[in-house]
Structure formats: structure tokens, C-alpha cells
């Protein structure tokens, strides 16, 4: 425990005015812990990491940690990340977004970032609700769920974030939860190491908004629900559709080698230099 605390303190910004903005029991703190442990394991220098976020509860995460941090406009984090990565490909770019941020207002940027395949790590915190604005339904709110804008039950159907990322062409896609923290550490670490667009969807709890309105209980009950509902990808393969009813898979969903934008662009540069030698 002491070791763990020391590690967290190595990366926290001590001149930042704490306390943080999150509710007691929020999954965001667990994700931040996982992220710090994963980064520490990869051995990257603080100066080499650029941590970028959009707008929302989880997007407040970068302000607390001692990297190059960029808190962008709502839904646009991946566009800023694209610019950072292209201007300096040596930087290790990690983006943290929520489900509303990445899937609603930023949904278009998300699929195009996946298709473009830059070497960027995208962590999407999925708590099924807009937490910061007070509990409105998000693109991942389940059918029938209550929120402040679906008081009679939600009539839309949710996006499957990871499956969307796979279809859109991401190099690496994984799903974890804030209950399975050991696995989450590994997934984030793998995503950072991965050359290409790497997505980690993290199932998290918003007991304050989602939990309360849908009688899911507090953080403990919601974590227990994750424990019960999550099935390792490897095990899920052996399970029938009926057995998987109401459950979701965790682990690495896709890990494939695809051409990386920056490498492809280097070829364009060589070509252009040949054509317009005087400029080079």
C-alpha cells in the first residue's frame, strides 16, 4: 500500500488545488490509478506523455497529473490529439474521454481517428450517463433506463463502444471495468505499447446519477454488478448466447497490425521531396 501511494504521488500535481471534482466512490479515481501504474510500467518520461481529454467528469482527469496535459473542447479531444501527434510523433499521446464526449458530440471524430490509425491511445470511460451535467441519458444509456431526460424510460438503443471501434478500424480494442483493476492496468499498458490507434473502454460506475435513478445501489453494489456481469473474452467463446444474456466481455477484443498514418505519411514526404526538390 505504501509503495502504491508513493507511486501515485510521483505523478500527482502537488501545486494543483485539491480536492478533486469527483464524487466519493467514483470510478474515475480507479482509472487514474490504473493509468498511472500502466504509464509507470511502460517507463516513459513524464515529458514524453501528452494526456488529452474532452469535457465531462472523466475529462477532468489530466489536470491532476504531472504530464503535458490538454483539456480540450467537448468531444474534440481526438482532433487535438491528431495535431499533437502529427506535429511531434515522438510524443506518447493518451486521450481520456467519457461516453457522452466520445460517442455523442465526438462520435464522428472517434470513428475517423480509428480509421486513420495514428499511434494514439484512447481511454473511454463508459458510465452510461452524462454525470457532470446532472444525469441525462448518453449514447450508451441502456434501453429502458431512467435519466433526467428520459424520466419515463429510455427509448433509444446504446452504442457498443468497443465493437464500434473494431468496425471503424482501430488496431487494438479492449474492454475493462473499474472492478477488474489488475486487468485494467494490463489493458492500458498494452494499449500504450501498441503501435496504432488503441482503444480501451472502461466500464465505470456513476452511482450518483445512473445508479440512483435506476436503483442500482451505491458504488459497492455497482462494482459487484460488474464482477457478476463481466466475462473474459476467452471464456465467452465457450459460452452460449443464453449464458451471455445480460453479460459483457472484458479483455482484448482485437489486436492487429495495420498501417500507421505517420509511417505512411513519411512515404508521402519522400515522394514530395523528390518532386519538389528545391523545397526540401
Amino acid at each position: 500500500m505504501a509503495e502504491l501511494t508513493k507511486l501515485i504521488h510521483k505523478y500527482l500535481r502537488h501545486d494543483k488545488k485539491f480536492p478533486h471534482v469527483w464524487c466519493p466512490g467514483c470510478g474515475n479515481g480507479i482509472i487514474l490509478g490504473s493509468l498511472i501504474r500502466a504509464i509507470d510500467k511502460t517507463g516513459f518520461e513524464k515529458d514524453d506523455i501528452v494526456l488529452i481529454s474532452g469535457i465531462g467528469c472523466s475529462s477532468r482527469l489530466p489536470v491532476y497529473v504531472d504530464f503535458n496535459t490538454l483539456h480540450t473542447t467537448h468531444g474534440r479531444a481526438l482532433t487535438f490529439a491528431t495535431g499533437v501527434k502529427l506535429a511531434n510523433p515522438r510524443l506518447q499521446v493518451i486521450v481520456v474521454m467519457g461516453d457522452g464526449d466520445a460517442m455523442a458530440i465526438g462520435g464522428n471524430h472517434f470513428i475517423h481517428a480509428a480509421r486513420r490509425n495514428l499511434n494514439i491511445t484512447a481511454i473511454i470511460v463508459n458510465n452510461n450517463i452524462y454525470g457532470m451535467t446532472g444525469g441525462q441519458f448518453s449514447p450508451t444509456t441502456p434501453y429502458g433506463a431512467r435519466s433526467t431526460t428520459s424520466p419515463f424510460g429510455h427509448i433509444e438503443h446504446p452504442f457498443a463502444i468497443s465493437e464500434l471501434a473494431v468496425t471503424a478500424g482501430a488496431s487494438f480494442v479492449a474492454r475493462g471495468t473499474v472492478y477488474h483493476t489488475h486487468l485494467l492496468d494490463q489493458l492500458i499498458e498494452k494499449a500504450i505499447y501498441k503501435r496504432g490507434f488503441a482503444v480501451v473502454e472502461v466500464i465505470s460506475n456513476c452511482h450518483t446519477q445512473y445508479g440512483r435513478k435506476n436503483k442500482k445501489g451505491g458504488p459497492v453494489e455497482m462494482l459487484k454488478w460488474m464482477k457478476k456481469s463481466a466475462v473474459r473474452v476467452e471464456r465467452a467463446k465457450e459460452m452460449s448466447a443464453e449464458e451471455m444474456e445480460g453479460k459483457f466481455t472484458i479483455g482484448v477484443l482485437v489486436d492487429r497490425e495495420l498501417p500507421i498514418f505517420t509511417k505512411e505519411y513519411e512515404k508521402i514526404r519522400q515522394e514530395a521531396k523528390k518532386e519538389y526538390g528545391i523545397l526540401g
Binding site: 480540450t72 474534440r76 482532433t79 487535438f80 502529427l86 471524430h109 505519411y265
Partner: peptide, 26 residues
């Protein structure tokens, strides 16, 4: 690309300016 720079066509104008700001910060 001939001067070692980068051109990118983004998915819309919001993304274009986002990328420009990111590049400038880098």
C-alpha cells in the same frame, strides 16, 4: 510534405481547427 511538414484532411472543420491547435501546442 516537401518541406517536411504535415498536411491532413480532417473529417470536418471543427476537427481541422482542433488538429491545428494541437499541432501548435506541440
Amino acid at each position: 510534405p516537401a518541406v517536411g511538414g504535415t498536411f491532413i484532411q480532417m473529417e470536418d472543420e471543427i476537427a481541422s481547427l482542433g488538429a491545428v491547435i494541437g499541432a501548435s501546442l506541440a
